[in-house]
């Protein structure tokens, strides 16, 4: 089997398999959460809490009282740099939008490649800084489980291989593209079964917290 055949499989059946497993796992995860239900609220509600839920999604994403110094600075700065960078790269690189167009029929304007490039580099550097921080801070190290390293690697691999593919670094493009798409597929497959699900549950949890607080008439 040559690399051309590998790429063909990765762009075709492999992608289908990965998407299928991803959706399978995420459907289980989310339905389990939603079907569990909540305890009946016996107190009279002050508001529906819907708006409060959305407000909390936003407010929890901002530094408390507009002061980032009140959060662990290192994690806050590099964490945001990495997440924003990843978001821009994932959704605003032209070839990625083509994927969405092919899969969902949705497309939107892309950012110029050099701009996406800057965000990629920011993400890569931030991720390395976060790993370094995790390895050197005794507290973080104590809290770290092997899964944390796994999800770091799962996220880092597509970023790095994508950057290398776009710039034709080190290996022939056919190899790099196979590695890049393959690493994304691995990410998709393991996504529902690791803490990577936070990309979805984070907003559900924040909204729920906000809604509960809103119903009680308190701020969250």
């Amino acid at each position: 089997m040559n690399i051309e055949a590998v790429l063909l499989w990765i762009r075709g059946p492999g992608l289908g398999l990965a998407l299928g497993i991803f959706l399978f796992g995420m459907a289980i995860k989310l339905l389990e959460i939603f079907l569990l239900g909540r305890k009946k609220n016996l107190a009279a509600v002050r508001s529906s809490g819907v708006a409060a839920g959305f407000r909390t999604i936003l407010s929890r994403s901002l530094p408390p009282d507009g002061n980032i110094l009140r959060r662990p600075r290192f994690t806050f700065i590099f964490g945001y740099a990495f997440h924003i960078g990843l978001f821009v790269v994932m959704f605003f690189l032209a070839p990625h939008i083509e994927v969405s167009h092919a899969l969902l029929g949705l497309s939107w304007p892309a950012l110029p490649t050099p701009v996406v490039d800057v965000f990629t580099i920011i993400s890569i550097i931030a991720m390395m800084a976060l790993l370094w921080h995790r390895l050197t801070s005794p507290l973080l190290k104590y809290l770290t489980t092997p899964q944390d390293y796994l999800v770091w690697a799962l996220t880092f691999a597509p970023l790095l291989s994508g950057y290398m593919a776009y710039h034709h670094l080190l290996l022939p493009y056919t190899w790099l593209l196979s590695i890049h798409i393959g690493s994304v597929e691995l990410l998709l497959i393991l996504f529902p079964f690791t803490k990577l699900t936070h990309a979805f549950t984070l907003f559900i949890a924040r909204w729920y917290t906000g809604m509960m607080a809103g119903q009680k008439g308190v701020q969250s």
Binding site: L8, R11, G16, L19, G20, E98, V99, A102, L103
Partner: peptide, 18 residues
């Protein structure tokens, strides 16, 4: 960068089974 085959079936199957 687009998939080389239609992945709709696999995705739908995964979603329904999940």
């Amino acid at each position: 960068s687009e998939p080389s085959v239609n992945t709709g079936n696999a995705a739908a199957f995964g979603l329904v089974a999940g």
